[in-house]
């Protein structure tokens, strides 16, 4: 279980995260939504141990998070790869870092799950489509079987059809792999369709946390309502009750 307790991060004089407390169980998905500058990226950095906490703690199964080797899927698929390396070598990096050997059967299974043709990995990032590059990014995140995977706006660079397809592949793999997923996004439609819980972050504070259904049906705060209504007006929540 990922546990954030009273996490505060201060940059310069301003607090970018303020007393954030969250929990996320294995095999579950938590989506953190909020606008630019709300502290979403700082939250990911805090979980990964990339920023110093001024207060509070982040743990995985009551131990330091880095011990569970969390993986990260980034926003810009092509920029997330070394352009000079074949995708196959990039995918091998997490294994190399942990001195693990490649389980070929696992690689094949994940490639099938992500609908990546076997020879695609021999290309460089610039030689595949953005949608394919992002699926390779997910493959790289999952190759070493992490218990916790963080997703930073994983679909925002993809077109509407590819977004939904990729989201479905992630959810299907999660059922098999049972990783906990922490998704940072400003797409409430994605959050509503693919997470168990939604946390609304605003100015570094958690405004509310609820199950996805409850949040879409009845946000508890004014800001939550503003977010939900905006998503409705953009057509992102069509089909919801």
């Amino acid at each position: 279980m990922l546990k954030l307790e009273y996490v505060s991060v201060t940059r310069g004089k301003t607090a970018t995260l303020h007393d954030v407390s969250l929990t996320l169980a294995p095999a579950k998905t938590l989506a953190v939504v909020g606008e630019s500058g709300a502290g979403k990226s700082t939250l990911l950095a805090a979980v990964l141990g990339l920023v110093r906490l001024s207060r509070g703690s982040v743990t995985w199964m009551d131990d330091a998070v880095h011990r569970c080797h969390p993986a990260l899927v980034m926003q810009e698929p092509r920029a997330a790869f070394n352009p000079a390396l074949s995708l196959r070598r990039s995918v091998g990096e997490p294994l190399k870092a942990r001195k693990l050997t490649l389980d070929k059967a696992r690689l094949e299974r994940l490639c099938r799950g992500l609908e990546l043709p076997p020879d695609l990995l021999d290309r460089r990032p610039s030689e595949v489509s953005i949608g394919q590059a992002q699926r390779v990014g997910i493959l790289r995140a999952l190759i070493a079987a992490p218990a916790l995977v963080l997703f930073d706006e994983p679909l925002s660079a993809l077109d509407a059809v590819t977004q939904k397809h990729t989201a479905r592949l992630i959810s299907e793999l999660q059922v098999e792999e049972k990783f906990a997923a922490l998704i940072v996004t400003h797409d409430l439609g994605y959050a509503a369709a693919h997470s168990d819980e939604i946390a609304v972050l605003r100015s570094g504070r958690i405004e509310e946390i609820a199950t996805a259904e409850a949040f879409i049906e009845r946000p508890q705060t004014d800001y939550g309502r503003t977010l939900r209504d905006a998503a409705f007006s953009l057509g992102a929540l069509e089909g919801a009750a």
Binding site: A160, H165, R168, G189, A236, L237, G239
Partner: peptide, 12 residues
């Protein structure tokens, strides 16, 4: 058809 079928997150 593909665009229309994938236009909503919640009714795919």
């Amino acid at each position: 058809r593909s665009l229309s079928a994938h236009r909503n997150w919640l009714s795919l």
